[in-house]
Design a protein around this nucleic acid. Structure first.
Length: 582
RNA sequence: CGGGGCGUAGCGCAGCUUGGUAGCGCACUACAAUGGGGUUGUAGGGGUCGAAGGUUCAAAUCCUUUCGCCCCGACCA
């Protein structure tokens, strides 16, 4: 590609709303331009990178035996009614009407469409297992799009769906996809981890997320420092603190704590460490069943108390897993608490509390603790389980923190930030059952298929790769992702016939050999060309100048290592061949 | 949805308080010098001041409405 025939679109200045490094660099390097909130145009350089990701994904998916299809972005709303997700999915699902007033949605994912396709086209167990994938645009009407391509509303995703007769068979494909994903991210040159994940609202048995490690990530991942255990923080199990309950030595005493509401307030006011205080949170419980039509009492949500050690943080995802706790987790309002308990939040405690009390494992071994007195402006000291109060149940409700014992039994946990770039699920029959997607089995009976689904955020990978690979001059692409493999930077080409001839010849040769070459034939000063080649992150640079031609060499420079080598003109092709293969 | 902020040339911004018909840097065009790390000079082109309405002799500036965008939070994965 000649620079004079290309849209380089690099910029020195960048819109002030670009916060993360990948967003800034993608704008500066002329990869993307914003059209509206969460909507981006991919310029030539960005598209080249995107295509590289797609190529690797496609090759590995094909290798794993998956079949590529392409489904519509616009989907009939009836399909979403059939899976009951039309209501469930919420406002992220963009709904539209056609000219006839029929309802459609813009696809945020394609379980419905693929299940419909499969039920209509696959009839026999002999056709199973099968795995279909596509690389396609998705639309999710995110509440708050941000970080450019990292969390856009419209984005490119590879999604795959597998269908099986048996659970075992699903396990097999799941493992194949796990391996395939590892191969893909390895080829892309990313530092990634596969982590145990929550199955969330999609449901199903097992699930792994693939995270690219980067400080700007939006997820917390817990690792063991001495095994290969890795889990999303909401999946990492926290344990009881201490082996058994400490012995009590104090008596229950009420103390006045006027205007002391937070744990920090109380801790300071009473000069007691937060580790000795119990925090009590009131949340909505699961809805009572209606006994008869119009039974208003059943519409009032019951309340549930959660108790947790003062210095620990409640994990919402864990809490939502408790059968008595409503999902989504909802904190009770001040009014609800006042009505039920008689005081405001800030003075609640388990002693004499007439609500179900779910105790986090951090509190079960505590003794002589401080807690709210269920009376405004008062707390209790010297409170003890059994003697003064009871908890209904114990449950793992808190975030693990760095240094906690690893759930795998080996070592301690470390926590790092990650960007989710892949997610694989064992779906089970959630969709196939709703759609009655069944096949005839060996015995001639209809059997509902079991499904798996496997996503990769293609456009997000581009951003996350930059988060891991940049320096003060710009992007440093891993080889597999680079928009161009080689940049040719001629010095003063329009004045020096010799430089021009040598550059044109080299450009022609490399192009004919199939390399992606960026030939900077602009009439620009050297500094401008160097800066642009570095900004857009081309891995290999060849400088052609009078000086080096004098000694019959080209100058080679590697973007990542800054290694500089003078290569004899006649050896340049074999030199590059060797460099680029390795 | 709650809180905060911003819309002036492709990008970054000033001008608004105190109304007088729009400016700076980058980018762009032409010419010249320079020619191995964003060089310099000269001359240019480009703006419905987010939109609508109002006040006024006069509105980027004051008032009202509205649209868009960003940040924090909640939400979601």
């Amino acid at each position: 590609m000649r620079a004079t025939r290309y849209l380089l679109a690099t910029q020195r200045e960048v819109p002030s709303d670009a916060e993360v490094i990948s967003h800034r660099l993608m704008l500066r390097a002329g990869m993307i331009r914003k059209l509206a909130s969460g909507l981006y145009t991919w310029l030539p350089t960005g598209l080249r990178v995107l295509r590289n990701v797609e190529r690797v994904v496609r090759e590995e998916m094909d290798k794993a035996g998956a079949l590529e299809v392409l489904m519509p972005v616009v989907q009939p709303a009836e399909l979403w009614e059939e899976s009951k997700r039309l209501q469930q999915y919420g406002l992220e699902l963009l709904r539209i009407k056609d000219r006839h007033g029929r309802d459609f949605v813009l696809g945020p994912t394609h379980e419905e469409v693929i299940t419909d396709m499969v039920r209509n086209n696959i009839q026999s167990y002999k056709q199973l297992p099968c795995n279909f994938y596509q690389i396609q645009t998705k639309f999710r009407d995110e509440v708050r799009p941000r970080f450019g391509a990292m969390r856009a509303r419209e984005f490119i995703m590879k999604d795959a769906y597998s269908f099986h007769l048996s659970e075992d068979c699903l396990q097999n494909t799941y493992q194949t996809m796990h391996d395939t994903y590892s191969a893909i991210f390895t080829r892309l040159g990313l530092d990634f981890r596969a982590v145990l994940a929550d199955t969330g609202s999609i449901g199903g048995n097992a699930s792994h997320e693939f995270h690219v490690l980067a400080d700007s990530g939006e997820d917390d991942i817990a690792f063991s420092n001495s095994s290969n255990y890795a889990a999303n923080i909401e999946m990492a199990e926290a344990f009881a603190i201490g082996d058994s309950r400490a012995t009590s030595s104090a008596d229950l005493t009420e103390v006045a704590t006027p205007d002391q509401h937070s744990i920090a307030d109380v801790s300071e006011f009473l000069n007691v460490s937060a580790e000795n205080i119990i925090k009590t949170l009131i949340v909505h419980g699961t809805k009572a069943k209606k006994t008869k039509k119009g039974d208003d009492a059943a519409d009032t949500l019951p309340l549930v108390a959660i108790v947790i050690r003062g210095d620990k943080a409640l994990n919402e995802i864990k809490a939502e897993k408790h059968p008595l706790i409503a999902e989504p987790l909802t904190m009770a309002s001040d009014e609800e608490i006042k009505n039920a308990i008689g005081c405001l939040p800030g003075s609640i405690g388990p002693v004499g509390l007439a609500l179900p009390i779910i105790a986090d494992l951090s509190v079960i071994n505590m003794a002589d603790f401080v807690c709210g007195a269920n009376k405004d402006g008062a707390h209790l000291t010297g409170a003890n389980w059994e003697k003064d109060c009871q908890f209904t149940e114990q449950f793992d409700l808190r975030d693990v923190v760095e240094g906690d014992p690893s759930p795998c039994g080996e070592g301690q946990l470390e926590i790092k930030r990650g960007i989710e770039v892949g997610h694989i699920f064992q779906l089970g029959t959630k969709y196939s059952a709703a759609f009655n997607a069944s096949v005839c089995d060996e015995s001639g009976k209809n059997k509902v298929m079991t499904m798996g689904c496997y996503g990769i955020g293609v456009s997000r990978i581009v951003a996350s790769a930059i988060e891991q690979n940049y320096d003060e001059y710009g992007i440093i692409w891993p080889e597999a992702l680079a928009p161009f493999q080689i940049s040719l930077v001629p010095m003063n080409m329009h004045k020096s016939i010799r430089v021009q001839e040598a550059s044109e010849k080299l450009y022609k040769e490399l192009t004919e050999l199939g390399y992606d070459v960026f030939f900077d034939d602009r009439k620009e000063r050297p500094g401008v060309k160097f800066s642009d080649a570095e900004l857009i992150g081309i891995p290999h640079r060849i400088v052609i100048g009078e000086k080096s031609l004098e000694s019959n060499t080209f100058e080679y420079k590697h973007r990542r290592t800054n290694e500089k080598i003078d290569v004899p003109v006649n050896d340049i092709i074999s030199f590059l061949k060797e460099r680029i293969c390795s």
